[in-house]
Design a binder for these strands. Structure first.
Lengths: 144, 144
DNA sequence: ATAGATGCAAAATGTTTGCAAGTAA
DNA sequence: TTACTTGCAAACATTTTGCATCTAT
């Protein structure tokens, strides 16, 4: 459960200060080997700032995601979600309210075939495509 | 962290018994309103089996995913992952070892444009595409 | 009869947050 | 000076697991 209140309306974006912690976390994220978990970031950054805390890592990763400098791979919010749908379809997740809607897969070609071309060495089994955006409801409730 | 040992080689697939719990969980997952978290499944199933436990729900969801009857939306394994990559690219995740590799986005058209067609009401911001498959390393280490 | 499943509770994981102290601007 | 940040620790949330008991086959 846990429906965090997500009312971002009228929230003045705070100033961002480039602290040593934030700078080094970002540097790590821009390193060739990406795909890091928060814990991996923590371990790497700790080599340079031995007493940095997990809280700081999480807070900064979140800020970096919001400012578009990095992306979160594990989609969606906190808990995993399961989909029992039968037909091939994709998802759109509203960044404001978190609601997930279905997207017909029709408009997109056969992705697995396309993948077979682009992905060497892998035996492709399946794929998942998720869009993010703002749903109509949240668009209208946005102040500006 | 937590690198669960993932050596599935030579693991005889166990018999699956259709218990009441498993059947009802699957029924719930095939209901129109999908996109459920484990907790939501738990709450729904509990209306029919009041003393079912979360452990049972998790174990069955996992089995249903493995047998392909449902899919897990929040991609990847346990922890969220962050990607600091600059250029547009997608990911392939090996179902055996969990390793994530990049896929050039070139072979796929402009997905956000295609989405604008298929997705009504949403203001599309971005998208994430993840393939699953078996990497070459795991292909060769598979017994059969 | 017996391999598989369940319920329960505890443990493990992963993430968020309150607060006093520190620091960039 | 003053918001924003940090480190720390505790609180939360989510998922996994050990074990005795139960049950589909």
């Amino acid at each position: 459960m846990s429906k965090k209140s997500q009312d971002n309306s009228a929230v003045k974006t705070p100033q961002s200060r480039m602290t040593k912690q934030r700078r080094i976390i970002l540097e790590q994220m821009q390193t060739p080997n990406r795909h890091l978990t928060a814990d991996e970031v923590y371990l790497r950054v700790r080599e340079r700032i031995p007493n940095i805390s997990m809280g700081t890592v999480y807070r900064n990763l979140e800020l970096l995601v919001q400012s578009g400098k990095i992306k979160r791979l594990s989609m969606g919010g906190g808990a995993k979600q399961y989909d029992g749908g039968a037909h091939r379809h994709y998802h759109v997740r509203c960044v404001e309210c978190g609601r997930v809607s279905d997207v017909s897969a029709g408009a997109f070609g056969d992705m697995n075939v396309a993948a077979a071309v682009g992905v060497e060495g892998f035996d492709i089994i399946d794929h998942e495509l998720e869009f993010t955006g703002v749903c109509s409801k949240c668009q209208s409730s946005k102040p500006v």
